[in-house]
Amino acid sequence: MIYTCIIIDDKRHFTTLLEEYIAELPELELIKTFHDPTRAIAELTAEHFIADIIFLDIHMPHISGIELAPHLKKKCKFLVFITAHAQYAVNAFDLEADDFLYKPFKIERLQQSIKKITGHTTPAVQENTDNDFFFIKISGTQSKYLKFLYSEVIAFESDKNYIRIYTPNDCYRIYLGINEVEKKLAGRNDFIKVHRSFIISKAYIELVENNMVVMKNSNVQVVIGKQYKASFFAYLESHKF
């Protein structure tokens, strides 16, 4: 089945990326992109067609996605909010949005969203296998490197000028800053920062209770930092049943 889509977002660099994602997924067909929300509401309310999915930015000039949403719900089967501002997540779900995508996101996150809202699985997009692992140079040596699979990393923890890398079988203390880890993880969708000292793997989250995240296959428990709470709970909301 083909799902028709409309994008409403004033940020052209992002709509270009989302258009590329949609073009790669054979289940999706882009009808139109609007960069002006006032033009979008004028055209969509005047015309009689209905799209399957509308991807709607929240923070836009003149009129916000939150204000647009009630007018657009009847123009689509599924409404998906997209924004870089996690504090809007609660408002999005109050308006009965079908999903919430937190920018920036990768094509795999878009696939998850389509599967969630439609119940249809899109074909997997193959990634370069070089993205599955990384090497850490052992300090004090000239040519000794330790290989890690991203899929086996439970968490990265900052410890002054070092980081601890937790895996199911061990914990490694490496001379490296947490900022360098963040740069390396930029663009990946399988890790999330929940505290200024902790970046955790989404796959290893076992339990979230109040402000505590418990990671499976380890003794790692992390208190969610105040400045990361909104984005983390937005992520949880977007993946709940």
Rank of each mutant, 00 (worst) to 15 (best):
E67S: 13
F133T: 08
F135Y: 15
D99C: 04
I154T: 07
Q87N: 10
H71Q: 13
C171K: 15
D132V: 05
Y88P: 00
F148N: 06
T167C: 09
V125D: 00
F100H: 05
S139Q: 11
T141A: 07
I107N: 06
C76N: 02
A69H: 13
I136W: 05
S143K: 15
G65W: 04
F156P: 03
D159H: 11
L68Y: 08
F100Q: 07
P123G: 04
A89P: 05
F93H: 04
S158L: 04
P104W: 12
K75C: 00
H85F: 15
Q126P: 01
I165F: 10
R164C: 08
G119F: 09
I163P: 09
Q126L: 13
Q111W: 00
K77P: 00
E152F: 04
A97K: 04
P168H: 07
I165Q: 07
L68W: 04
K160F: 10
R109M: 07
C171Q: 14
V125M: 08
Y162P: 05
H71I: 01
K75V: 01
I163N: 04
C76K: 01
G140Q: 11
E67T: 13
I107E: 08
Y102V: 12
A92V: 12
P168Q: 07
N169K: 14
N91I: 00
Q142Y: 10
S143W: 02
N169H: 14
E108Y: 08
K116G: 01
H85R: 03
E127W: 04
P168I: 12
K75L: 01
F81M: 11
N161L: 05
C76W: 03
E108F: 09
E157G: 05
A97Q: 06
Y172H: 15
K137D: 08
P123M: 11
T83R: 05
F105N: 05
E108N: 14
A124G: 06
Y150Q: 10
E157L: 10
L110G: 01
C76G: 02
K115E: 12
K73D: 03
K74P: 00
P123S: 12
G119S: 06
Y172Q: 13
E157N: 09
A97F: 09
H71D: 13
T118H: 03
